[in-house]
Amino acid sequence: MGKARIVHYINQFYAGIGGEDKADHLPEKRDGFVGPGMAINAALGGVGEVVGTVFCGDSYFNENLEAATATVLDMIKAYAPDIVVVGPGFNAGRYGMACGTVAKLVDENLKIPVVGGLYEENPGLEIFKRHAYFVPVGDSAASMRKAVPDMVAIVKKLIAGEEITEGFFPKGLRKNYFADKRGSRRAVDMLLKKIAGEEFVTEYPMPVFDRVSPPPAIKDMKTARIALVSSGGPVPKGNPDRIESSSASKYGKYSLVDIVDFTADNGETAHGGYDPVYANIDLDRVLPVDVVKEMVAAGEIGSLHDYWYATVGNGTSVASSKQFAADIAKQLVADNVSCVILTST
């Protein structure tokens, strides 16, 4: 690569158009650098050049996704870039989403590398991280001075054709390589180190789960309102919402009003991670509606919430699961549910 052609995407604020009152600004392009692109261009030290800047109001971009993405992609393409830089978007929600969307557009359509900068909690990062080298940056523009050299360091490595192994949020992509020792040997070596109390490095770090303090106990079950929720995929026969058998992208909410007992005719499991035969014959084995309804009739439980919630907990990401749980919990609280039986398979 000679002097690499860089196109920079920013929002209306960094382009100097204006703040929130200009957030509906239509996509526009200018030759050369604009705003933070000046520092990026300088840091490139001549190995690359910001040949064009494309910018758009954050509200316009997110509210008119189809039109905005088409225009922005055309504008970027017009400069025939080798690399596209987005942001840094720090912890700005809509700007982060715009940066991520542009990264995806470029990655999928132009098939050239994208470098960006986002704060670790920016929602755009989780959704779009596989489409760019997103460098960790601070949560506000105050950290611009650190963000620019960190981002440019990656750009320079791309220009030089070097392998990029650090300095960005993992894209969540697997890369195959030939290891010296086979997996069983590496696992046993790790186990021996663990037994000996020595340091070892896992090859597959587990996600970090948060903790919540236990809510207080139910004082009187005879007046409690209980809800049934499950990650075992219990759905009405036919899986009306087409919840995926693995890596579920959604959850379902289904009425229990007309169901007193599950049979092979009114329920099934959408879960693809266990043998579905037993659940498809009698879904009470996953979601105990029959006995709970009897207990309500007998006065053992105050009442049963009219709906059950279900998703498939099979390879479903922690981020999706958290989102489903937050949504479901909000609705349950609004419906005065006092406790939940959550079944998992």
Binding site: D284, V286, V291, M295, I341
Partner: peptide, 29 residues
């Protein structure tokens, strides 16, 4: 595949097992 059941049991016994487990959950709550 059947957290709240046991297909090897006759239906009434299976339901009894399910009732026992749900009562345990209610006690836990």
């Amino acid at each position: 595949p059947y957290p709240l059941g046991d297909p090897s049991l006759p239906p009434e016994e299976e339901k009894g097992l399910r009732r026992k487990l749900v009562r345990k959950a209610l006690d836990a709550l």
